[in-house]
Amino acid sequence: MNVFRLSGDVSHLLAILILLMKIWKTRSCAGISGKSQILFALVYTTRYLDLFTSFISPYNTAMKVFFIASSYATIYLIYLKFKATYDRNHDTFRMEFLVLPVLVLAFVVNHDFTPLEILWTFSIYLESVAILPQLFMVSKTGQAETITSHYLFALGMYRALYIVNWVYRYYFEGFYDLIAIIAGVVQTVLYCDFFYLYVTKVLKGKQLTLPA
């Protein structure tokens, strides 16, 4: 565990808390893509099946349990508790366009052809593109609430910090995982356009709006 990895995890935790707080405090999930949240729940569920097979540390276990539980809690808030506020007309990205190609890729490019390893690989690939329905929704409506942009920024920073962590681990531990690195870079690149808008608009006190 190095400082970049820890900061990445904290950023990830913060993103989830920001999202849950936003929905809970405003009693509304307007502007939030339920589809991205379903994909994230699928990501955590398929990746953390190793909770049953290997123990790494209390920290590791606690974080995994939190990520799984919070992702289902978010889905509950969007699709049940506050479903009247869910903006389904703007959440039109087709999940199967992401899930199916990623599933095929996980079967073809993996470290080991075993059920758990293929599911882990699937979750890594899926995570890299799971935010697309949310970004698609923002681009469709042309705007995002400031709190939603804070959520997206924290979520993007999480994988960006993981990249720094991988560089660190490569140099100091000789460790690298090409599947995680390539997927992580793809994931981070998807946020670049958003990062630019966040820095030039949201940090200057303006709402995030896209040029028409």
Partner: peptide, 10 residues
């Protein structure tokens, strides 16, 4: 090395 990757990250 890339072989035998242990998934110790989240």
């Amino acid at each position: 090395a890339d072989a035998d990757v242990a998934h110790d990250e989240l």
